[in-house]
Nucleic acid binder design. Structure first.
Lengths: 143, 143
DNA sequence: CTGTTCGATGAAATTAAATTTCAATTTCGG
DNA sequence: CCGAAATTGAAATTTAATTTCATCGAACAG
């Protein structure tokens, strides 16, 4: 899975005549290892522990490249802060977010996906992407 | 429908010991008349034509009040710009957005709503709100 | 190898939008 | 009407995203 993402990234870089640098490799590896939704600053904090010389701008720009190469996806849980999640080699999922404790649960539901496709088709749209976020209160917080 | 929204707003204001001012009334009326998704700046431009003395801060703040009183809803179509749409007296709808011409279509689909409820229930969540945006290319742009 | 070119990098500056501040003004209950 | 408390508008601030620019480094030709 990680190997696949690395291969995709390499291909993307060479297609665009971009260079495979030490920084980009380290940032991609670090990104692949995290399973949470991180902002570019949060990823920068982790990357910095492995290589103090890497700047936050590079992390920011590399994440943009990961999005362009379909390895990452930008998500926004309603607070207008951009977070990144894995896209490559994962099936699409939606999010269930607790408005109280901010816990997020990833949902995979093929019925939803099918419905979305059929709605788009009904209006003559070719569906490219979508996001669905459900906001509520989780069991723990409801007590 | 507009009367209903105005009554809701009045009630909200008095409940919170806030005052019913000329500006708030005009902003609410103007908001109710627009059927598009506007930013606070865009709404300000329209309101200004009716009363030059109103400031954009007041429009911004009044929109926040409309959200609190459930008359309006904030939406974000992926560009991190907050737009406002009617919520009171409308059933919930989702959005289909053309990534090319930016056209947005409002979708009402009870099957989706039901599925969302049942997913939330499955994970022990009480659903409060949700947003679903489908991004694609419309018929016209596809040619 | 090694020089050269062009993309990459990092710190700092800039942009863009949201939000807050504050002095002056307005509302509304008494 | 009066006065306390909320509101207003302009301007300032905050916050996150994005760009700039002076080096630096990768990779390729020779």
């Amino acid at each position: 899975m990680q190997k696949q993402a690395k291969a995709v990234f390499e291909q993307y870089l060479s297609k665009k005549n971009l260079k495979a640098t030490h920084q980009r490799n380290l940032i991609l590896e670090t990104f692949l290892k995290t399973e949470k939704h991180l902002t570019h600053e949060e990823l920068y904090e982790i990357v910095k522990k492995k290589d103090k010389s890497i700047g936050q701008t590079t992390v920011y720009r590399t994440l943009k490249l990961l999005v362009e190469s379909d390895i990452a996806r930008e998500v926004d849980f309603g607070d207008r802060i951009v977070r990144y999640e894995h896209k490559c080699c994962h099936i699409h999922h939606d999010h269930l977010i607790c408005m109280h404790c901010k816990k997020t649960i990833e949902i995979v539901d093929s019925q939803i996906e099918e419905l979305q496709e059929s709605i788009a088709a009904k209006y003559g749209f070719v569906l490219v992407d979508h996001n669905m976020s459900l906001y509520g209160i989780c069991n723990d917080c409801f007590k």
